[in-house]
């Protein structure tokens, strides 16, 4: 489900070599979710800002789309789909 607006969230991430970013955990609705799998990554632009998108699953197999904005160094939750 795509959220009506992007939610600013707190994310723990590893900024590795070769400009790779790997989110490890994030806080959503008061609880910390460990990222089980990064299923897909892509980037987009909003004006000059480069946005990195991460499609990820947590331990409960819920699916989330996280986004990192390079111009403001901020993280957002854009979509989520809870597993049945």
């Amino acid at each position: 489900m795509v959220l009506k607006e992007a939610h600013p969230i707190k994310v723990g991430a590893v900024f590795g070599d070769k400009k790779k970013i790997r989110p490890v955990w994030f806080v959503w609705e008061g609880s910390t979710h460990r990222i089980k799998e990064i299923t897909y990554t892509w980037s987009s632009r909003e004006g000059h800002a480069l946005l990195y998108h991460f499609s990820i699953t947590d331990g409960a197999d819920n699916l989330y789309e996280l986004c990192y904005r390079t111009d403001s160094a901020t993280w957002h939750l854009l979509a989520l789909e809870e597993s049945n």
């Binding site: 969230i9 994310v11 909003e46 986004c67």
Partner: peptide
């Protein structure tokens, strides 16, 4: 176009 993300947490 994509969903906008202005404002947010580090």
């Amino acid at each position: 176009g994509h969903r906008t993300t202005k404002g947010g947490c580090t």
